[in-house]
């Protein structure tokens, strides 16, 4: 069974909690997804609003594990402090570590990411790093203490799907015994199937479900697509061939001329 830091993971679908039309639809989408791990964040609380408490009540009712993130952090200091505040608030040492390097592409600052991952791992955190598909960076993250890697497949929220599947294939082959989660860039269920077929262990997505016309139905579609992709991987798909190969036996065909 898939494990993250020694904890069994029942669903290969990690789901974000942002951008849903309403809290009710968020709750319904989570149930439809079958996700057991939800990403959450931290933001400034307005005095007297109780906003954060209401959201936290909803998440706790869903009885899932939370994976707090450091979304929006652009420096090591910001990310480390946010992670520590998240641990204090959510009571978990899991952290989805984001150190953003570029405003437009939201691509990770991989140098800051490795540095922050080392600081947090040394402090007892179990770090889930949002990274690129660069193998050298992956190696550095493992050296820093990470035991899960989360490469993007396209920019956050872009819905493009795997823009470099060959790199993902190589990444999977290189880190054959490390749990790998594709995080960011998935737009459609078929994208999720594709990366699961490549052997990735799980996917983490948010926008593709939350901003769909029907988030609850899309959550179901992704759940099924993820299951299909995993089953296909385990069933060992046929390798592509350059030339046609008849599927119907030719031996014993009638001759009419």
């Amino acid at each position: 069974m898939l494990e993250f830091y020694g904890e069994p993971v029942a669903s290969r679908f990690l789901l974000g909690t942002a951008q849903y039309p309403s809290p009710k639809i968020l709750g319904q989408a989570v149930k439809a997804s079958g996700a057991q791990i939800l990403t959450v964040s931290l933001r400034r609380e307005t005095a007297g609003s109780g906003t954060g408490g209401k959201f936290w009540d909803l998440i706790r009712e869903l009885k899932v594990k939370v994976l707090p993130n450091t979304a929006g952090c652009h420096s090591v200091k910001e990310a480390v402090t946010t992670a520590k505040m998240a641990r204090d608030l959510f009571g978990t040492d899991w952290i989805k570590l984001e150190v953003i390097g570029h405003h437009d592409t939201l691509q990770p600052d991989v140098f800051g990411l490795v540095e922050a991952a080392r600081i947090l791992s040394d402090d007892g955190f179990k770090v889930f790093p949002y990274t690129t598909e660069d193998i050298c960076v992956g190696e550095k993250l493992l050296e820093a203490g990470c035991r899960v890697l989360m490469p993007w497949c396209a920019p956050i929220g872009s819905a493009r799907g795997p823009v470099n599947p060959e790199a993902l294939r190589t990444y999977r082959a290189h880190f054959s015994d490390v749990p790998l989660v594709v995080d960011a860039g998935l737009g459609r269920p078929s994208h999720a199937t594709q990366v699961l077929e490549l052997g990735f262990d799980a996917v983490l997505l948010n926008t593709a479900v939350a901003r769909a016309g029907d988030p609850v139905a899309m959550a179901s579609a992704f759940r099924l697509a993820i299951e299909a992709g995993r089953l296909a991987f385990e069933a060992k798909p046929l390798a592509p061939r350059d030339m046609a190969v008849p599927s119907t036996p030719v031996l014993g065909m009638a001759v009419f001329e």
Partner: peptide, 8 residues
């Protein structure tokens, strides 16, 4: 002063 919030 931070509180829980939706996140991806």
């Amino acid at each position: 002063i931070l509180s829980p919030m939706q996140g991806g």
